[in-house]
């Protein structure tokens, strides 16, 4: 087995009472990488993770971890750890007992347990909290306990199911960096489920974007942002997302294209009469370093433009915009990308 596929999913499908769960999931995850499963609610990303964890068994396909076929293995035989969205801490056990629970179950000696516990708490900055109960900790601290529990056993694969979704925005940013650093320092392989594209884009080496149980695109954050496979990816990734314009709305140079996409940063406001599209301003949103101006045009959706600094434009006023052909993304009638 080459190191290029530490975790391998091949044609995995899971259905519930005939309803679609996930279908045709094939993934290769190299060791030591950070993979994010991204997608809207109900897209099957959590299901994929649970299949990987062994909490669900697939109806089709095979799963292997570290060269071992684990398709039907019990969760405990897969040598992985998991961080749950709710943290799933045992409320009656102290922080220390929570962290070493798995070690105790696996009959690790008391001395070794102490050493590993100390190290895990040190890494997660929880020293001094050993005797607290989860109920006496803040959300961020509980989250770190869950992390400590996941890393204490030294498993090489760690699954995380939206671990940051219960934290407030500021804490989320801090913990995001912590998790990324932790993953690098320990050299573990992380599969991370999130619906927040910022998380996925900023942390992951590889992003797997899913929708309705199918994988839409697998690639680096840059791939997803700069070369979206289809209009769904284009509209999901990026803030603001890519604007889609009906190809007939302006003099197009592309053959058989149905839709073209363009990112806000590639649009320029030009003096009246010199642009390729004339739009109506619907809103101006001041973001600090720049102002996001929402535009409305009959043949386009999600059109907006960024202006540096505070630059509010009156609602309802008409402005002309221009863009270069090179910065356009071209999609066919089915929404698939046409050219590189």
């Amino acid at each position: 087995m080459t190191p290029s596929s530490f975790v391998k999913l091949d044609g995995v499908a899971k259905r519930w009472n005939g309803q679609l769960g996930v279908e045709g999931i094939s993934l290769d995850i190299p060791e030591g990488s950070f993979t994010a499963l991204l997608g809207p609610s109900g897209c099957g990303k959590s299901t994929t993770l649970r299949l990987l964890a062994g909490l669900e068994l697939p109806d089709e396909g095979t799963i292997s971890i570290d060269g071992k076929d684990v398709t039907t293995s019990a969760a405990s035989d897969r040598n992985l750890s998991m961080v749950f969205q709710s943290y799933a801490l045992f409320p009656h056990l102290s922080v220390a007992e929570n962290v070493v629970f798995g070690l105790k179950v696996r009959r690790v000696s008391k001395k070794e347990r102490q050493v590993k516990l100390h190290r895990a708490l040190e890494i997660t900055g929880l020293l001094g909290y050993e005797r607290r109960k989860p109920g006496e900790l803040s959300g961020g601290q509980r989250q770190r306990v869950a992390l400590a529990r996941a890393i204490v056993a030294g498993q090489r694969l760690c699954l995380m199911d939206e671990p940051l979704s219960n934290l407030d925005a500021k804490l989320r940013n801090a913990v995001r960096k912590d998790i990324k650093k932790l993953q690098r320092d320990l050299g573990i392989t992380v599969v991370y489920v999130t619906h927040d594209q910022t998380e996925a884009m900023s942390m992951a080496d590889t992003v797997v974007l899913m929708k309705d149980g199918h994988i839409q695109q697998i690639g680096s954050p840059d791939d997803l942002y700069s070369r979206p496979n289809n209009t769904f990816v284009a509209e999901f990734v990026g803030a603001p997302p890519m604007a889609l314009i009906d190809a007939t709305a302006f003099a197009s140079v592309f053959d058989n294209s149905a839709t073209v996409g363009i990112r806000a940063e590639n649009i320029q406001i030009v003096p009246s009469g010199q642009g390729r599209l004339r739009c109506v301003v619907t809103e101006s949103e001041f973001l600090g370093a720049e102002t996001l101006i929402g535009l409305d045009h009959a043949g386009a959706s999600g059109l907006c433009v960024l202006k540096p600094g505070l630059a509010m434009v009156a609602e309802g006023s008409e402005i002309d915009i221009d863009f270069q052909d090179e910065s356009l993304h071209v999609f066919d009638a089915d929404g698939q990308r046409l050219t590189g």
Binding site: A53, G54, L55, A74, A75, S76, L80, S81, M82, F84, S86, A88, F90, F101, G102, V105, R106, R149, A153
Partner: peptide
């Protein structure tokens, strides 16, 4: 919560444990 059982499963705890 159901996920306590799942967390225990992943840690390798038997049903009895």
């Amino acid at each position: 919560p159901e996920d306590l059982k799942e967390a225990a499963d992943i840690e390798g705890a038997s049903r009895w444990t």
